[in-house]
Design a protein around this nucleic acid. Sequence first.
RNA 1: GAUCCCGUAGCUCAGUCGGUAGAGCACUUGACUUUUAAUCAAGGAGUCAUGGGUUCGAGUCCCAUCGGGAUCACCA
Length: 513
Amino acid sequence: MTEQELLRREALVKLRELGIDPYPAPMFDVTAFAADIVANYQEEVLEDGSKKRLNCQEVALAGRVMAAREAGKAMFLNLQDSSGRIQLYMRREEVNGGDENSPLFDTVVKKLLDLGDYIGIKGFAFRTKTGEVSVHVQEFKFLSKSLRPLPIVKRDAEGNTYDAFTDPEQRYRMRYVDLTVNPEVREVFIKRTKLIKTIRQFLDELGLLEVETPILQPIHGGASARPFKSHHNTLDMPLYMRIANELYLKRLIVGGFDGVYELGKMFRNEGMDRTHNPEFTMLEYYVAYKDYFWLMEQTERMLERVARALHPSGDSTVQIGENSIQFAGPYRRLTMFDAIQEYTGLNVETADEAELRAYCKKEHIEIDASMGKAKLIDEIFGEKVEGHLIQPTFLIDYPVEMSPLTKKHRSKAGLVERFELFVNGKEVGNAYSELNDPIDQRERFEEQLELAKRGDEEAMALDEDFLRALEYAMPPTAGIGFGIDRLTMLFTGQSSIQEVLFFPQMRPEVNPG
RNA sequence: GAUCCCGUAGCUCAGUCGGUAGAGCACUUGACUUUUAAUCAAGGAGUCAUGGGUUCGAGUCCCAUCGGGAUCACCA
């Protein structure tokens, strides 16, 4: 244990010797919050120049002590609660209750109270000589003693920060410390919650039913990715953590719900980087009798609403680096072929596989022999186009080979009715008119099985029960999925997924402590 | 999985050519009854990520391992 930790444990013992419980059981009745007092405190200046305090004259606050400035027989503390910080003012004679020999001020407050301790106080608001709204403490009690020193982050009047707690490893491993000392981190997560709430409200208003589907699945379907594998002991069978919930949600459409959505975690056993965490949050929703054009309109409405909900002034634009992104629709609609034509001059519709291979070689795009034309087009798009799509853009009409669950295009042979939404050069959503022809769907699954045989670990497994469901008939349906973490990154200006997950996946610590 | 960078006090960081480990904040002791990055005086605090190696001598050079970050690959 460090010197500072030992001192805090000694303080714990001394508090108990003085009859003070550092971890009391009774609830503390909080009646006020720091930010509200700072914002609402009022006083008036009387004719004789003295001040009359008008409100906040009996307040009880609870929070963490984040700074302490001793000034002889007085003391200033900064108390931080969930709303923010407020200064506390304590005086020796009051804390001691008029008893000259009381240890309360000189020992308990000045020596045994440490930064990071939770305390509860009662007192009245006032404004100090220097103009800061503060609380004059009349009573205080320990609520919980902190045994470890917090990183001390200081800010001066100009807003400069000193000794910020910045080490990403420590911030992610000890998010509780990060949240305590870095208020801007709190704000990101509050925005995340607001984003999810706004989306949920939007979907509820559309009349969709929020549902839950299995996370442990006997067959992992609905996406191309490697799953986490587990095992059920009683059933003695393998179970997979879901990589998608698409096939279950469509079964519910078969069952007669007109619209369903699920917000939940997906799990993919793949690489991790600044945009991938092994578990991540997806929104998927499916609506009967609609198509992908309808989904484009809903997406424009939903994201505009989210942008306005998160923006301090209710604006629909979001500033990301140098780009001001406009979330009010309509968004640009661009076919995948037109997009490639526009950014490369290449006509992928007329080009044959050999020409595409030659282009990739010329442009140093990594490809391998197993890639067919559709995959080559996807690679070219990823390398040459994706990064240019800054303003929200619907990229529409994909080659059928890449989309085994998507309905064939109503008029364009070889394509499917699918779009992906790109914002700030990254994909944030994927949608299509769902394939509901059970015979076509079986053929698509069989093509996936061929890919699996050729060694594609991410090829989709054939799901007989899902096919049976489609054979009972699924109405024409439109479905869409959004990566909630990535949307959050977009709307909070974060470039790392770890900044929008409270507890991003980390390798285990060797010696925690 | 590959490459590069990083790991020194509770926090943020210096540490020269290889020669006894440094600063600010935090902490301890003292002064101060309206301070606010409080101030002033004095003091304590380190397995230099871990393990090897080179060397008379390693925080510093070399190798390996662990952890983190960035870039790439795969994906959302």
